[in-house]
């Protein structure tokens, strides 16, 4: 936030249009870039299942909390998987732990 944004906010005015432009652009580009890589939701679903199968061989995952998504930043799209582990198969971990496993596409 800049000084101008703060003053605008205090006076209840619209934020400057450059900010709006930036946000709209980031949204539309995220869409465009994913379209180009032809990664459809179907493929993503398939990939999510397979990743889970592999990980579940070694640790017990909290299936309710699993999130696999595509995130785009700096022209690079990353596959971000958040797979909370309940315990290892030998049952040593009792607490919940979050693991981020970003993979380059």
């Amino acid at each position: 936030m800049t000084l101008r944004d703060l003053i605008n906010k205090l006076l209840g005015r619209q934020t400057s249009s450059a900010n709006t432009a930036r946000e709209r652009l980031q949204l539309v580009l995220a869409h465009d870039r994913v379209d180009m890589s032809t990664l459809t939701t179907d493929l993503l679903d398939k990939m999510r299942k397979e990743i889970l199968d592999v990980v579940a061989k070694y640790v017990e995952i909290d299936f309710e909390e699993v999130a696999v998504s595509l995130e785009t930043e700096d022209r690079m799209t990353a596959l971000v998987a958040n797979l909370p582990i309940k315990r290892t198969l030998t049952g040593e971990i009792e607490f919940k732990k979050n693991y981020d496993t970003p993979k380059k596409k």
């Binding site: 800049t2 101008r4 944004d5 400057s16 249009s17 450059a18 432009a21």
Partner: peptide, 9 residues
Amino acid sequence: NQEMLSIED
């Protein structure tokens, strides 16, 4: 005036 995308943007 922040009415145009900046160079950095």
